[in-house]
Computed example of a mutant assay.
Amino acid sequence: MNQQMDIKYPGIFRDEGTYWGVRFPDVPAAQTFGASVQKAADNAANALAVALFEQPIPPASDPQYWRLASNEFVVWITMSNATFGPGDTAPTPMH
């Protein structure tokens, strides 16, 4: 049974000096980076799609109580109308 849903996770963006790193505490396999915040956000949606393909969808944490370094901030990354289910070739991120 295919199911379409919006998937949203908080990602921690970190200024690494020459690039922006992104990690998702709720989806450790979804780590990526980009030369700018926008590129990192685009890559983050794709990293989520790959990490969550044919995997159970974990609940998203509330980042309100996370301790962040001074060079970090949180962005919610959303994949809209992602289709997950047997026979799908890949979830399609919409960012």
Rank of each mutant, 00 (worst) to 15 (best):
V27D: 09
V27S: 05
V27N: 13
A29E: 14
A29D: 14
A29G: 01
A30P: 04
Q31C: 04
T32M: 02
T32A: 03
F33G: 01
F33E: 13
F33C: 05
F33V: 03
G34M: 12
G34P: 10
G34S: 08
S36M: 09
S36G: 05
S36N: 10
V37M: 06
V37K: 15
V37G: 00
V37A: 07
Q38E: 14
Q38P: 00
K39H: 08
A40S: 12
A41L: 10
A41F: 04
A41Q: 13
A41I: 04
D42A: 05
D42R: 04
D42Y: 08
N43K: 02
N43G: 01
N43L: 00
A44V: 03
A44R: 08
A44D: 10
A45T: 10
A45L: 02
A45F: 00
N46R: 02
N46P: 00
A47H: 11
A47C: 08
L48E: 13
A49G: 15
A49T: 11
V50A: 10
V50K: 00
V50F: 11
A51D: 10
L52G: 14
F53Q: 14
F53A: 15
F53I: 04
F53P: 11
E54H: 07
E54Y: 00
Q55K: 14
P56W: 05
P56Y: 05
I57G: 09
I57W: 04
I57E: 13
P58E: 10
P58G: 07
A60T: 13
S61F: 03
D62F: 00
D62A: 06
D62N: 15
D62L: 00
D62S: 12
D62G: 07
D62I: 01
P63I: 07
Q64L: 09
Q64F: 01
Y65H: 13
Y65Q: 09
W66I: 05
W66H: 04
R67G: 03
R67D: 15
R67E: 15
L68P: 01
L68C: 06
L68S: 11
A69I: 00
A69N: 14
S70E: 15
S70D: 15
N71K: 06
E72G: 01
E72R: 01
E72L: 02
F73C: 09
F73S: 12
F73M: 09
F73H: 13
F73Q: 11
F73G: 02
V74R: 04
V74T: 05
V75P: 01
V75I: 15
W76S: 01
I77M: 09
I77C: 06
T78F: 02
M79P: 00
M79R: 06
S80K: 14
S80I: 02
S80A: 12
N81S: 10
N81Q: 14
N81Y: 01
N81A: 09
A82N: 07
T83H: 06
F84R: 14
F84G: 11
F84P: 07
G85K: 11
P86K: 13
P86M: 05
P86C: 03
D88Q: 15
D88N: 12
D88P: 02
T89A: 12
P91L: 07
P91Q: 11
T92C: 06
